[in-house]
Amino acid sequence: MYYLLNRIAQGLVVIFFALTLGFLLVFVIGDPVLMRVGEDASQEMIDRYRQMMGLDRPIIVQYVDFMTRAVQGDFGLSYRSQQDVLSLLLERLSRSAELAIPAIILALVVSIPVGVLSAIKRNTWIDYVARVLALIGQAAPQFWVAIMAIVIFAVALGWMPSSGRVTDQGFWTYVAHMAMPTFVLALTPMAYLTRMMRSTVLEVINEDYVRTARAKGLAEHRIIYYHAVRNALVPYVTLTALQVGNVIAGSMVVESVFSWPGLGRLFMNSIRQLDIPVVAGGLALVAVIYVVLNLLADLSYTLLDPRVRNK
């Protein structure tokens, strides 16, 4: 219980810093007033807007005001669309989840069996192929993979639609549009997780309790799944939570390349257009997601490892 409270407190600190960073963006990116009124506006116009946007107040007052409203989920209105930032973000978040959740599932479904197989078939061609693919998946930049996927599968072969999110032409058209971005998004975490599973299983397989399992006369598959993989899951789950962060980061690039109207693309566009409320809100939202996922990983730790549970 103390452990959990401790982790929640840490998470709150992270969110606090993310919010502060979001607030400070105003002073780093450029003058949002000038962005609104244009470079050639009159001083009077500028002053009026500055006052309207509350940017003429002392910084500390602005900060307190920002934070008070932020914790209530109020990040103001988007400079560009004049929409409420939070509802805008949440709407886009659900679109991103349409890619991110299948991507994570795909990464898990591939990495567990491939990682285990790679470990138990160590130094065979299966292992070599899996390791090389994982290394490529980890090293290849997502924007490049995304563009190559479009070039090959959409342009050259014409098998897949190149971009966009289409919902009004039936389920399979929708699936066809989400397939490539999902796969590209899944690639990096899949590679990391495969390598993680492989190395953890290799480590665990040399543990004394695996030798005990062998001495008990258990069948090999039982030794692998009940004694090796089960124990390897503990670090694997932690890395999965961290890899969700990778997926969020990757969605900025992937959604931009595939014109998927999710959070990542909104974020990229908002940065480009200096739509500071959206950027600040997005930053906070991503921080909250990250903290919550890490908290879930910590909780899963207590489920997976009785030694943590009883502390």
Partner: peptide, 13 residues
Amino acid sequence: MIFQEPMTSLNPV
């Protein structure tokens, strides 16, 4: 068979 390392010879989970 029983082993030298009672601390690590049982599966912790």
